[in-house]
């Protein structure tokens, strides 16, 4: 009898679950981890959607796109969240995404008009250093200095690719010369952001390529105000993280609802202190305490997403040549 009750209960539970629509969102690993935005976002969205939100973490932004290409139109995903400006052109080329009708009052330094992808947070790439180091004012000064830096490989890491685009964007034809001057400053090149940041914290380098928002983590989560981001007068290249819904989604309304939710106040207040980036839409209550201490670049650099692939190829060849000598 007991078993029967149990079986009935299980059956009932399964049926109930089947009736709740499920929204599958592919995102990067650090988004879904317990200390990332994932759990709070899931809770907040499920309160309003009467659905089951399934966040699936898949490596980084590049891995996300590769996965989507592997799955093609058969993908279970309804929404993909975590591509960045460097990957948008390639993502659009897949033809798997559907236009969005999101309108939001974005707090981005550039105007956002992409019809398919909507930003949810962003940041400036920057070199992070300990405050006892006097940072250089630009790439040229960095190249002339004795400062040691750790960077990420643009062939395996999105921040690494960001730095490549940053230098290319700021210096165009002069970029190879800038890289040659910086070659002796580069202690080493790592596979991903974590390795580089770890090396920096261990004292292997004076500066590491990261974000202007990185010091906020140390300040807010660790009450450590010893880190700062160097502001370069060429301006700073931006990483804008975007999301889009898939044309093959079996939950198109829910997907649209989720995108709207992500730019709403509820989600945007969660992001700054879990993803450690600037929110795409400034929350009503403003930025969290501590963010006002961050240095803000005077100039934002941005490349039209369609030009990224061609520029990347050229910049990568220059980078390889300059650093392989």
């Amino acid at each position: 009898m007991k078993y029967l009750t149990f079986a009935t209960a299980t059956l009932a539970a399964t049926t109930a679950m089947a009736e709740t629509p499920e929204l599958v969102v592919y995102t990067y690993d650090s988004f879904v981890s317990e200390w990332g935005p994932g759990p709070a976002i899931e809770k907040a969205f499920e309160e309003v959607c009467a659905c089951d939100l399934r966040l699936v973490g898949l490596g980084d932004g590049a891995a996300l796109l590769a996965r989507l290409k592997l799955e093609g139109a058969r993908s279970d995903a309804d929404v993909v969240m975590g591509l960045d400006t460097a990957l948008i052109a390639a993502a659009q080329e897949t033809g798997l995404f559907q236009e969005t009708d999101i309108v939001a009052d974005y707090a981005l330094p550039v105007e956002w008009t992409d019809p398919v992808f909507a930003p949810y947070d962003w940041g400036y790439f920057a070199f992070v250093h300990n405050k006892d180091v006097t940072p250089p004012a630009n790439f040229k000064a960095l190249g002339e200095s004795d400062l040691k830096i750790v960077i990420q490989d643009p062939r395996s890491s999105t921040p690494g690719l960001g730095l490549l685009m940053w230098v290319k964007n700021a210096y165009r034809d002069e970029a190879p010369a800038i890289w040659e001057a910086m070659a002796d400053n580069v202690v080493t090149v790592t596979k991903g952001w974590s390795e580089a940041y770890g090396l920096f914290l261990e004292g292997e380098a004076d500066m590491v390529l990261s974000y202007t928002t990185s010091p906020a983590y140390h300040l807010i989560a660790e009450e450590d105000d010893s880190k700062a981001a160097a502001i370069f007068d060429e301006g700073h290249y931006m990483q804008i993280e975007v999301m889009g819904r898939l044309a093959g989604s079996d939950q198109p309304e829910l997907a649209a609802e989720f995108l709207k939710f992500m730019v709403s106040d509820a989600a945007q207040t969660i992001l700054p202190t879990t993803n450690w980036m600037y929110p795409a839409v400034t929350p009503d209550a403003g930025l969290p305490k501590g963010f006002e201490t961050l240095t803000v670049p005077e100039k934002a650099l941005h490349v039209d997403v369609q030009n990224v692939p061609a520029l990347r190829e050229e910049a990568l060849a220059e980078w390889l040549k300059a650093l392989s000598q």
């Binding site: 490989d153 395996s156 080493t188």
Partner: peptide
């Protein structure tokens, strides 16, 4: 990762890194 990190830059590119790049970034 070991070769790249301790090799000090793209001089220390191994086949595995090229495979990774082909799968992840260039698809």
């Amino acid at each position: 990762a070991v070769a790249l990190t301790l090799g000090g830059g793209p001089r220390a590119t191994t086949i595995e890194l090229a495979i990774y790049q082909a799968f992840r970034f260039d698809f």
